[in-house]
């Protein structure tokens, strides 16, 4: 019950402030316009970089929203409401991550084909692009809670958050973008996808514990 009310509240809060949801998408669109402008509009050049660009954009646009996962709650005092309510902290973290995924990860997945079209991604790679993003965006949210919890009472924690989270996300990027790239080259992406799923399981078990520990230290 507590899990659902926290999830529900966070989705509602994000929904009320719709800019949180569409801004990452606008950001993606802006960046993707710059690639042809900087690289030249040749379909072949764009096609080559498409798997990586779609993936990196998905990553960055979620990265810019991570900072506020716990920061907002810390600032308006509602963090105290659920940390002191006797709710298990790792469960609360999973609820926060799930809400973050629903409000940023899911729109990014839905929007990914648009970006892919603009970059001439080969048609064969769409399925695997969606699948890899579907596995990976929850990882972003889960690992993001760790970073967000670490910097929640810092004023300018954004840059630090990127430094902390980048090494965690590097393997995810390698496997995810790799899966799409292999598909465009006509190889099987099964290995990459399996490893990506492994990353998901690992972050689902470890990230809530780490984030809960960080919150605890921050409240000491």
């Amino acid at each position: 019950m507590r899990f659902w009310i926290l999830l529900q509240r966070d989705v509602l809060v994000a929904w009320r402030k719709k800019s949180n949801i569409y801004q990452p998408l606008v950001f993606q669109l802006l960046i993707v316009t710059m690639f042809p402008l900087g690289l030249g509009a040749g379909a072949q050049t764009l096609q080559k970089i498409a798997p990586a660009v779609v993936w990196i954009l998905a990553l960055i646009s979620t990265l810019i929203t991570l900072e506020n996962i716990f920061k907002d709650d810390y600032e308006d005092g509602s963090l105290a409401l659920y940390t002191l309510s006797g709710m298990s902290l790792p469960v609360a973290v999973i609820a926060k991550a799930a809400a973050h995924w629903l409000t940023t990860g899911l729109p990014v997945i839905i929007f990914a084909p648009v970006i892919a079209v603009l970059l001439h991604l080969p048609a064969s790679a769409y399925g695997i692009l969606m699948l890899s993003l579907l596995i990976a965006t929850p990882i972003f949210s889960l690992l993001g809670t760790v970073g967000s919890a670490l910097i929640m009472n810092l004023k300018n924690g954004g840059m630090l958050l990127s430094v902390l989270i980048m090494p965690l996300l590097a393997p995810v990027l390698i496997f995810g973008a790799g899966a799409v790239l292999e598909t465009t080259l006509g190889n099987t992406p099964v290995g990459h996808i399996t490893l990506l799923a492994g990353c998901f399981v690992l972050s689902l078990t470890l990230a809530p514990l780490a984030a809960a520990a960080a919150i605890k230290v921050n409240l000491e």
Binding site: L168, A170, I174, L195, V217, E220
Partner: peptide, 28 residues
């Protein structure tokens, strides 16, 4: 004190992460 505890947490996360990075980059 808090800084050191948070830094310790980051270091531990990094320690777990290091073999994963190593493996994934090697695979890459």
């Amino acid at each position: 004190r808090k800084a050191a505890r948070l830094a310790a947490l980051v270091a531990i996360i990094g320690l777990i992460n290091l073999p994963i990075i190593r493996y994934s980059v090697e695979w890459w």
